[in-house]
Design a binder for these strands. Structure first.
Lengths: 101, 101
DNA sequence: TCGATCCATAGCCAACGGGTTATCAATTGC
DNA sequence: GCAATTGATAACCCGTTGGCTATGGATCGA
């Protein structure tokens, strides 16, 4: 889900801006995104579904902010891949040691 | 490019297997992938283009292995996002300090 | 040498995704 | 109360993508 959500450049740009600038309204995000407001809303919906942003309603505007903790699974995944690699390396090392005897 | 490449579950599964099991032939990967061999080849092509795997030809079979270093930009990106967040937090802290005086 | 195996490529198709415009509900200012 | 603003949703269009089958080139075994 995370990878798919962050795969789109426009959507990633929106998320990055929220990380950089903090809370932003849909209108502000739209002016920077270079696409129509409905398109921005759609992207925000996807980001929200992935847990990457949260929204807060204030009158007729909606403020969105990045939810950085949602990136944790991504960090875990990369660590896991690295772990697999290291484990294989250890096995190779063991094998070489046994061959050395 | 990285996010887009890893967005597809099947492709990610292939990459994960290469991380777990080390070098694998196209045939072996195909048996585990549950899709046709051409589909696997296509995925491997995309992974290769993204730098996530390298291939080695040996007779009529092609061995693929994960190139873990290619994940570095991804790790950098998450760190950058975290950095943005912290900077904003620091600014907020400063602001509160000034208001406290 | 000849059939079998392994993999890559080509060509095709259905589904998905990201964009648009149109519209509507809710809120706000006059 | 009414017009204007804000953002979400609906309906639609079209390019991309991930799957398939068919095929061909290269290598290996007999």
């Amino acid at each position: 889900m995370l990878f798919r959500t962050l795969a789109d450049p426009t959507r990633r740009a929106i998320f990055e801006q929220l990380c950089r600038e903090g809370e932003q309204t849909v209108g502000t995000l739209t002016t920077h995104a270079g696409i129509s407001q409905p398109a921005v809303s759609k992207h925000l919906g996807v980001l929200k579904q992935a847990g990457l942003v949260r929204d807060r309603h204030e009158g007729r505007q909606t403020h969105y902010r990045a939810q950085l903790g949602a990136l944790a699974p991504l960090i875990d995944w990369t660590r896991e891949m690295g772990g697999f690699w290291e484990r294989r390396f250890d096995q190779l090392e063991d094998l070489l040691k046994r061959m050395d005897q």
